[in-house]
């Protein structure tokens, strides 16, 4: 079975830190940052990038469409 490695890019300045991506991630990649963005929100970020499988779950549930998802097949 092919294995996938994924990665996400969060537009941290547009992120409102709602946390819906955090709970939607099946591999617990995402956390809200301790830092805040310009609006004062604890933005989402990849806390555990190695676990990302590029499933897009976070992107799908993100209300502000600030997450871009990439996925690569690894042997």
């Amino acid at each position: 079975m092919a294995k996938f490695k994924g990665a996400i890019v969060v537009d941290t300045e547009k992120c409102k830190g709602c946390g819906l991506c955090v709970v939607s991630c099946p591999t617990k990649v995402i956390e809200l940052a301790r830092d805040v963005n310009g609006k004062g929100y604890h933005y989402a970020h990849m806390a555990n990038p190695d676990a990302c499988i590029g499933c897009s779950s976070c992107g799908l549930v993100c209300p502000d469409t600030v997450i871009t998802v990439y996925r690569m097949k690894v042997s």
Binding site: K16, G59, C62, P63, D64, T65, I67, V69, Y70, R71
Partner: peptide, 28 residues
């Protein structure tokens, strides 16, 4: 490797909705 990104039909304007609002998802 890009598999999920914002559709160009969605404008770049930042949504005025509260954090976590379902409107954003439905709009998307």
């Amino acid at each position: 490797n890009l598999i999920y990104s914002k559709t160009p039909v969605l404008l770049d304007n930042e949504m005025h909705y509260c954090p976590g609002c379902t409107h954003g998802v439905i709009h998307k």
